[in-house]
């Protein structure tokens, strides 16, 4: 690899970095953990496509730029359409699944979501919920997280007491 090759790679890297950065900003990205499925796919594809002309200078730079721009535009149009149409939104990203209702586990929804009881228990423990009876609703969200609403939200004093117990 000669000096010219290194210079070309440097310039291409700078161009690609600016384009991908601008594309991500233009899309208005949320944090990685909050990405919907299509957004995650776009992010992964962009990363791979942008890298191709950087690793092989025989590949024209436009071979990386065009797909990145296309994915960006496609994602913006799809997410715009999903905002306008609830049906399209549900088709694209699915609906949240109610896993627990008033302390009772909905096994059918659990199976449909391909979540085991252990995984559900683990997700609830991470939210400091140790008794299923305390759960009013546990929802498997479309971004893959499980959110829970307590039957009786803990009073603030109890939360402070918990914090004190943790610290002592």
């Amino acid at each position: 690899m000669g000096v010219t090759d290194v210079a070309v790679i440097l310039i291409r890297t700078m161009i690609m970095f600016v384009v991908v950065y601008a594309a991500t900003r233009f899309m208005g990205k949320r944090q990685l953990g909050q990405l919907e499925l299509s957004e995650l796919i776009v992010a992964l594809l962009i990363a791979d496509l942008a890298a191709q002309p950087l690793s092989d200078i025989g590949v024209p730079l436009i071979n990386g730029l065009i797909p990145v721009m296309f994915l960006l535009c496609g994602e913006i149009l799809i997410s715009g359409a999903a905002l306008k149409s609830k049906r399209f939104h549900d088709f694209l990203w699915g609906k949240p699944n109610m896993l627990v209702e008033s302390g009772k586990i909905n096994l059918r929804e659990l199976r449909r979501s391909r979540i085991s009881l252990d995984e559900l228990a683990e997700a609830l423990r991470k939210k400091n919920i140790f008794d299923l009876a305390d759960v009013k609703y546990a929802v498997f969200e479309t971004d893959g997280t499980i959110s829970a609403i307590m039957e009786h939200p803990r009073p603030k004093a109890d939360r402070i007491a918990l914090q004190d117990n943790k610290n002592s």
Partner: peptide, 19 residues
């Protein structure tokens, strides 16, 4: 809405460029 319009225009430019 503006982002969608810009995205659509870019898309059309790319399709036109490809043709």
């Amino acid at each position: 809405m503006r982002k969608e319009i810009v995205a659509l225009i870019l898309l059309l430019i790319m399709v036109g460029g490809a043709i």
